[in-house]
Structures are given as C-alpha cells and as structure tokens.
Design a protein around this nucleic acid. Structure first.
Length: 534
RNA sequence: GGGCCCGUAGCUCAGCAAGGUAGAGCGACGGCCUCUUAAGCCGUGGGUCGAGGGUUCGAAUCCCUCCGGGCCCGCCA
C-alpha cells in the first residue's frame, strides 16, 4: 500500500518475469550458471512478424536475466525437421510434390542461395535477428537429430510411449498416440515424414517399425507409399512428434524459460507433463501470449506472398520500432499491418524523449517503465544521443511532393525551414528513406492524367508564358493569380488543377516556392505535357 | 468440444505487470499564412472505462458473475 515503489531491473514486465524465473530456479535447486531461454523457429513458410515476436520476447527475458546478474543465453531452434504441410502463398504450385517431406530435405525454391527450403526460410528470420541485433545461438532441428543430441530423451520416451500416449489423451483427448508411437520416421522409400506410422518399438535395438500409410494434412489426405520398414531412432532418420519433442528439447538443452503463442498451448501443456512424468525433469517456466494477426486488405509485397515479414517492416520503419510493437505488450491479440508502422515510429520518438529527459514524467514507476521499454527496444544498448524527431506523416507528405531526382535534398531543405533540424540530424537519412519507400510503394498510382476544360487549358498555357518570364518564387506565385484574373477563373480551382498536374493531389505546398524547388523548367515541362495530352 | 484475449471519446486504440484526479492519434468544430493553395501551427468540444457484484480509505486496473465481439486448438507442426 504505502510501500515504496520498488522497481525491478528496468521496470518492465521482462524484468519482473526474469526475477520470478530466477526465484523459481533457486527453489528448484538448479544451477544458475547459465539460464537458457528458447523459441522454435518455423521453417516451413515465410517468417511472419509474429515469428520474430517469439524470438524477441524470449531473448528479452534472457537480457533481463543478465541484468539481474546471471549468465543467460537465447537459443533459436529451427524446426526444420518438420514436414512441409502447405505450399506458402507466393511460391510455385510445383512445390506441392514436396508436401510431407522434411523442409530440410526440400531444395531451396529460390535457387542455390541456401541448402534447403527450410534453411532459406529460417535464414530469413535470422537475418531479421541480425538486423535487430539479437544475440542468439542457432540450432537446426535436423542437425540436432542427426548429431544425436536428443537420443537419451528419445529412448526414454520410446520406452514409455504407452504412458506418453495416455498423458496426451488425458490432457487433450487425442487418441492417435494410444496406438502409435510419438515418433515420425522419414520413409526410406519415398522420403516423406508425415506419411509414416510408427507402431512398434524394439527396445534392444532402439528401432521402430513403421508403415508409410499416409495421413491427413491440413484437411487433405496425403497417401503413403505403402513401404514397411524399421529405423534406428538414434540415427536422426526421423523426429519426435511435437507432443513430446519440446520436453526432450527442454531437458537435453537445459531450457529454463520459454514463452509461446497460444496456438501451441495444448502442446506445451502435454509436454510439461511428459517432461515431469517421463523424463523426470522440471519443465521451463512459461508465459503464454496472444497471436499477431494480419490486418489484411492491403497488398504488402508480391514476392513475400502478402505475408507481413520483418523485411517488409524494415522498408518503412526502424528495427527498434518493430521491437516496440513486439515488446510493449505481452497480452492481447493484436492485428498488425504496415499502416501501423508510422504509429510505432512516432511512439518510439516519444519514448526517446522520456529516456533523454526531454519530457518529464511525474510518476517514478511510470517513468522507469517507459525508460525501460525504450531500453529493451534497443536491446539494452540505447544510443548515447537522441535521434532527430519528425512526425512520420510529415515526412510522408514531404516525400509525396518532393521533386523527382532531388527528393532527399528537398525534404532536408523543408525540414530545415520548418525548424526540425535544430537539434541535430541523427538518423535523418534513414527516416527519409522510410518515407520515400512508403510513398513509392503505397501512394504512387494516384498520378493520373488530368482532364482539362478548354478554359483551364488556356489558363495553363498562359501560365507557362508567365512562368517563362518570371524570376523567382514570388513571380511564380503571382503568375497564378494574374492568369486566373485574366480569365475570370477562380484561383482556388486553378490551384487545384495545377496541383493535380504537378503532384497528383488537389492540394500541395505553396506554389511559387514549390516551382522554384523543382526547377521552373521541370514545372513547365509537366504543364506542357498536360495541355498537349488535352 | 476445450482454451485464450478484448470491450475505454464519433473512429482506431494506449493506459492494466505493481490500484492513487481519464489519455493519444484521426475525425468534428473555431482560428492562423496581407494577393481565396496546408501536408503545418494554435485552440475547443467530446467518455457513468460493456453490465452487475466483491475486495479496498481508494478500482479502467485485482476477484467473481453475466452480456457482447474476436482469436487459437481439436489427432499436423
């Protein structure tokens, strides 16, 4: 009640969770030499913003643990032994033939840039982690199985498969593993992993007997090849079902924390019990969060198949602004789209103002939280100086009207005029680039031919004459009124026409200075084209 | 069938971890550039925080019930 507001770490949710995590490990009496967090990286499709969220949040916990004075490590585990279930949007239909194959066995559809389909997909996510500056230890599921890192766990689970099947049934009502082993061998005949049914385990040889009988994948029946075989479960020729695999990973890799999306909540629930009851190991601390949803409606990028990827975000916004989206809240379903990027860019500026004491926050708890959030957006390596702050919308508006060929120069001039550059220009170049990308990608097609009435065409012709005679911004500005008066045209309407011709918008910057900025010859050129077309 | 989240200004949402005077953006409205151009600037209005109950000196925030909306999982991962 009246207790002083004791602030943990940087005052954020992450610091509190890290503290709980450490207290839990102390209670369990486990070594605190190295606290590992983990997240699984899907490798069967384009990494979505949410995939990055899995990584960043688990990494942020690792950072928070380090802030409490312990060593921590974040493991990015690629689920590349998983089979392909669906051809991702934007990729050729021919890939259908690879459905059911482990994604690490499928050739890279983009050519030779990566070893496999799975490798290509997970590397997209790793690239994003590198851009953001996440310090991770990468593990490939396929390689982990091949190197036998999970062998002890696989054997224990196979030996107790019946109990595992019962636990799965009790927790989520799934009957499949009452009759099958929670292990998917890669079929030695056809190479697929989802079509096999492992029905018997031979403990002495550590082999499973299986039939390639087929399985329903995403509502479609995937026919098996009928092959019957047996495989050594320690040879990396297959994988554990997700229902038991997490548990194996947690113990073998000594994972102490894993936050997960609610889509895998059931699997986590089952794996917690498997881990405790079969592997005799206390599972990691968990936090469940909601999903990020696509807003839809807006085309993002053809090559990415309309998936909202981190790479798309980086075209229009900074890595830190993306971190802000991913870190600021842990709960609540959130629909995200590119249209949200400006909001997060501006919000990050506000946080930066708080961090550098440019705005005062009375409540110390509130202040600590906002500062902490800012620091986590920078992964605890905040800059020493603030960047230049410009409302994103202003940049976009300037980018929209900037004369072709000298966009950056024009924007810099205007910003300077508006007084935005007084406190330095740190990060200005990137901001201009984001805004220009935004305009190029989302606002280009508005420039359509302007239909001119005979009167308007005449006005434009007269204006061209005046502009040729004029000498400077004031002359150009007056010319508009002069011409309008001479033809008893409403200046308002005439301006509208001129802006439509020059920038494709009914309104724009002050005419005279703008003509000077883009070069009077260029302006005349545009106007001539408009009358000729007419 | 099982589970999770949300409901706050006209709209979109923040605030909720750890209770202390209700916030932002957009829109609306009014004003500002001395030749009828605003992307800009200044200002105004606007909310019984879904409903009810509980805890508390104090609840948007914690607990319970209900109503409304959304999402995830259901023999894959």
């Amino acid at each position: 009640m009246t207790s002083p507001p004791e602030i943990i770490g940087h005052g954020t949710w992450y610091d509190k969770a890290a503290k709980e995590l450490i207290e839990r490990e102390l209670r369990l009496g486990r070594s605190l030499d190295l606290i590992r967090t983990e997240s699984g990286l899907g490798a069967s499709g384009f990494p979505h913003i949410g995939s990055l969220g899995d990584c960043i949040r688990n990494y942020a916990i690792a950072l928070a643990v380090e802030e409490q004075g312990y060593k921590a490590e974040y493991i990015a585990f690629s689920d590349d032994k998983d089979g392909l279930r669906k051809v991702p949007a934007g990729l050729p239909k021919e890939l259908e033939k690879w459905i059911g194959y482990p994604v690490s066995d499928i050739p890279d559809p983009f050519g030779r840039c990566h070893e496999s389909f799975g490798d290509h997909m997970s590397s997209l996510l790793l690239e994003a982690l590198d851009v953001i500056g996440v310090d991770y230890r990468f593990m490939s599921g396929a390689r982990v199985y091949r190197r036998g890192l999970l062998n002890r766990e696989i054997i224990e689970i196979m030996e107790n498969a019946e109990r595992a099947g019962r636990i799965i049934y009790e927790e989520i009502g799934q009957t499949k593993f009452l009759n099958s082993l929670p292990y998917f061998p890669v079929c030695e005949n056809c190479g697929r992993i989802y079509t096999t049914n492992a029905y018997r385990y031979l403990p002495d040889e550590r082999r499973v007997l299986y039939r390639c009988e087929g399985m329903e994948v995403k509502g479609r029946w995937l026919e098996g090849c009928g092959y019957e075989g047996e495989v050594d479960v320690t040879a990396g020729e297959g994988k554990l079902s997700w229902k038991v695999e997490f548990a194996a990973r947690w113990r073998a890799l000594d994972i102490r924390f894993e936050a997960y999306g609610k889509d895998i909540a059931d699997s986590v629930k089952v794996n917690d019990r498997i881990c405790r009851e079969i592997l005799g190991h206390e599972p990691p601390m968990h936090v469940q969060y909601e999903m990020f949803l696509d807003k839809g409606g807006r085309k993002i990028s053809k090559s990415a198949g309309n998936v909202f990827t981190p790479q798309v975000w980086f075209r229009y916004g900074s890595p830190q602004s993306l971190n802000l989206l991913l870190l600021k809240r842990f709960i609540g379903t959130r629909s995200v789209g590119v249209e949200d990027i400006p909001v997060y860019m501006d919000e990050l500026d506000r946080l930066e103002d708080v961090y550098f004491n440019r705005v005062n926050i009375e409540d110390p708890k509130e202040k600590a939280k906002l500062r902490g959030l800012y620091e986590y957006c920078w992964l605890l390596k905040p800059p020493r100086e603030p960047s230049v702050h410009i409302p994103y919308r202003l940049l976009v508006n300037l980018a929209r009207v900037a004369p072709e060929g000298r966009e950056e120069e024009y924007i810099r001039e205007k910003l300077s005029e508006y007084g935005y550059l007084k406190r330095g220009k740190r990060g200005l170049e990137e901001r201009i680039r984001y805004a220009l990308n935004w305009v190029r990608d989302f606002e280009e097609p508005v420039r359509k031919p302007v239909e001119l009435s005979a009167e308007e065409a005449e006005a434009v012709r007269r204006l061209i004459e005046e502009l040729r005679r004029g000498r400077g911004a004031d002359d150009y500005q007056s010319a508009v009124f002069k011409v309008a008066r001479s033809l008893s045209l409403s200046p308002r309407r005439f301006f509208r026409t001129l802006y439509l011709i020059l920038i494709g918008e009914p309104q724009g910057p002050r005419f005279g200075p703008y003509v000077e900025a883009i070069g009077v010859e260029n302006a005349i050129g545009e106007l001539e084209r408009a009358v000729e077309r007419d």
